[in-house]
Design a protein around this nucleic acid. Structure first.
Length: 422
RNA sequence: GGAGAGAUGGCAGAGCGGUUGAAUGCGGCGGUCUUGAAAACCGCUGAGUCCUCACGGGCUCCGGGGGUUCGAAUCCCUCUCUCUCCGCCA
């Protein structure tokens, strides 16, 4: 959520800045609602003040044993008037809040201009895609022989799921452990385990609701749970409604969890394989940062994700997303894209974003500085990494002519010291 | 699943229809004292929001929502969560 004060004071500037995303703000409607809001709020508070004064007068009169009929008569219809005004005010306020909740974050000034994917800016590249003197297979073909089982997954749950058997299941688990160990031991993150079934309130906090409702699965339960599309939802919401002491910052969490996405709106996209499944595993980094530090943190966190790819010897590039490609909450995002030989291109494997105070404001996550001044924290999140896609990348990049998979050195200790999946 | 108890400021804990945003204690901050520290004493110490250039002033919040009332932390309804006992269970 943007700062309501900013919206009030400089709406045209906000509208201008949002154009970078290709977003058009309904300035006229916001202005007229805002005007009404002000008028009604002043009126409501005036009436409330009157009511309070009267009630106090009654109390005092009674204490002195005086007759109160006269005061009571005077305030007879105040209640009704107040109630009517209050409900009108509430309506306007709700309408305004609903609009506010749908406005995306303002892009950082360093975000590349442009609305299309092609406008994303390559920041750096690491590694060189291998040359293969044979026809490369994609992960589906490679996986079929060694335990990647889509037919069975389809039997269980339908399209966009996978069953991993035997060594592939083991490989996935090794990757999770490997990533967690690096982030915990080398990058200083604290491991955290969280629920993957959460309330609507959490999803509002991290910005998936109300606008991105179609992307998340809701559970048909009494409690109205949702399945998290990323553990960012649960982890970031741990600080909802909190006022942290300044020395509690930064908070660095790493969390492994399953993630669930409905992938509505991506029909026909990546239908083959395990690039875009309804359920996938992810190791997620979250940082709760001081506002002054959050852009340093973003750089640092991106490097942390890169470390994993480097250790796994997977070629990748870092891309700064352009305005039009930014997620709803993000002020700035770096995507890490890993080389996939079968597609002959780089594909997203991690996304690191600074949401600044956008999520913090939605969830009232604040901190208190030394002087006692309270302000919103900045929240950042980054995949470190998407495990399923990492598995795909390892299979495809490390295949040989006879379809064996060579395990990267750094991962071998997590894989019983084995170097090959035959 | 059954029976009961509870939810108040950073924490502990009073208040159970009127001038209480809330006694008291602890903690925290500032000061006096001290070579320094401790102790003692004094003062301050919740969040949010609206109007205002400002000075100020108002409003909201005692787990969430609704109701009764001129007036609710206090009464009623409802939901959530926590605790105790019984049952069941990975």
């Amino acid at each position: 959520m943007l700062d309501p004060k900013l919206i009030r004071q400089d709406l045209s500037k906000v509208a201008e800045l949002l154009k970078k995303r290709g977003m058009t703000l309904d300035v006229a409607r916001i202005n007229s609602l805002e005007e009404k809001r002000k008028e009604l709020q002043v009126l409501v508070q005036q009436l409330q003040s009157e009511r309070n004064a009267n009630a106090k007068a009654v109390g005092q009169a009674k204490a002195q044993g005086k007759n109160v009929d006269e005061i009571l008569h005077q305030v007879k219809d105040l209640g009704e008037k107040l109630q009517a005004t209050e409900s009108e005010f509430e309506q306007v306020q709700n309408a305004l809040n609903d609009m506010l909740a749908m406005i995306p974050n303002i892009p950082h000034e360093s975000v590349p201009e442009g609305l299309k994917e092609e406008c994303n800016k390559e920041i750096r590249k690491w590694g060189t895609p291998k040359k293969y003197d044979f026809e490369v297979k994609d992960h589906v073909d490679l996986g079929a022989r060694i335990g990647m089982d889509f037919p069975t997954a389809a039997k269980l749950s339908g399209a966009r799921f996978v069953v991993l058997r035997n060594k592939l299941a083991r490989l996935q688990r090794a990757l999770i452990q490997f990533m967690l160990d690096i982030h915990i031991k080398e990058h200083g993150y604290q491991e955290i385990y969280v629920p993957t079934l959460v309330t609507a309130e959490c999803l509002f906090g991290t910005g998936q609701l109300p606008k991105m409702k179609e992307d998340v699965f809701s559970v048909n339960s009494e409690q109205g749970f949702y399945l998290v599309p990323t553990s960012e939802v649960s982890v970031t919401n741990t600080i909802r409604d909190e006022i942290l002491e300044i020395d509690q910052l930064p908070q660095k969490f790493v969390c492994y969890s399953s993630c669930f996405r409905s992938e509505a709106g991506s029909y026909g996209k990546d239908t083959r394989g395990m690039i875009r499944n309804h359920q996938f595993e992810k190791v997620e980094m979250i940082q709760i940062s001081h506002p002054d530090k959050s852009y340093e943190v973003l750089e640092e966190m991106t490097k942390h994700a890169e470390t994993i790819l480097q250790r796994l010897e997977l070629p990748y590039r870092v891309v700064a997303l352009c305005g039009g490609d930014l997620g709803f909450c993000a002020a700035k995002t770096y995507d890490l894209e890993v080389w996939l030989p079968s597609q002959n291109c780089y594909r997203e494997i991690s996304s690191c974003s600074n949401t600044e105070s956008f999520q913090a404001r939605r969830m009232k996550a604040r901190f208190k500085d030394k002087a006692g001044k309270i302000d919103f924290v900045h929240t950042l999140n980054g995949s470190g990494l998407a495990v399923g896609r990492t598995l795909v990348a390892i299979l495809e990049n490390n295949q040989d002519a006879i379809g064996r998979i060579h395990i990267p050195k750094a991962l071998q200790p997590y894989f019983d010291g084995q170097s090959v999946i035959e």
